[in-house]
Design a protein around this nucleic acid. Sequence first.
DNA 1: TCACGTCAAGCAGAT
DNA 2: ATCTGCTTGACGTGA
Length: 305
Amino acid sequence: MKIGYPCINLTLNCRSSRTFRLRNYSEERLIETIENNLNCLAKILEFNYKNNIFFFRITSDLIPFASHPIMKFDWQEYFKTKFKEIGVFIKKNSMRITMHPGQYTVLNSKSDRVVKNSIKELKYHVDVLDLLGLNSESKIITHVGGVYGDKKNSIKRFIEQHNKLNENIKDHYIIENDDKNYQLKDCLLINESTEIPIVLDSYHHYCYNQGELLEKAIELVNNTWKKSDGLPIVHYSSEHPLKGKYRHADEIDINHFKNFLKKTININFDLMLEIKNKEKSALSAIKILINDIRFMQILAEFSNN
DNA sequence: TCACGTCAAGCAGAT
DNA sequence: ATCTGCTTGACGTGA
């Protein structure tokens, strides 16, 4: 069990997602921004390595406007050496990487334009993983998309669009249950026709489910992962104590987390903590996991290398 | 120096 | 009809 966190490190004074506005676009600024973002990414990964964090989600803002028509610059070629360096560090240290395209990636949209843009966005994410030299254990995760008042047909559209994707996208692309529109059951249905692996988000599952117990739900999604997909991934969060349902917690809830570990003790997976204070919660989690056989295996593997 | 309006994109649900 | 959440707050303008 590797522990991970998404996109941002609050301890380091750098971001791998510097703001870049369309109206300020210039090639110079683009190069400068990407340089900043990649340098920061390298710093974050080094921080993670020093802190036994072997799992990380790379921000989709790494390359600004990567899938936008304005982008004519061959950033893949210009930065290939830097990407390769970072990729070597990742692989040498047995780290796992995922990415999570934003809410505008809607493969099952009723608009051809939106679908087309979504595929471009997926392709950009695959480009990043390819440049890093990462294999099909590195995943690109989205939700299923819109419902449009007709889930049956919306699922059908997702499956049709997924079937048309290039194999190199399919190698990385997976879906996650969400908290209001597509629950575990819906994702499993999509998996039957597409074999797409499913990430269970434990908090979303708590918000929207068919009564499946957490441990049962994790077992069901784990069956959708093939050997080449690597260890299944689970997303974890808990409810914000004040803001109520559908709102993620700002910091890890220690008791809730211990309970989560207890319930899942007989299942192994990599765990992404979707909690606002990022690496701080990951570090707390690792302290707790020091007694958990699943995490100790990772540390042991690493010290053997 | 600081406050505040704005930022590429989609969809759903609440106000 | 407009706002908020998702996620990822930070940039740039004008005072």
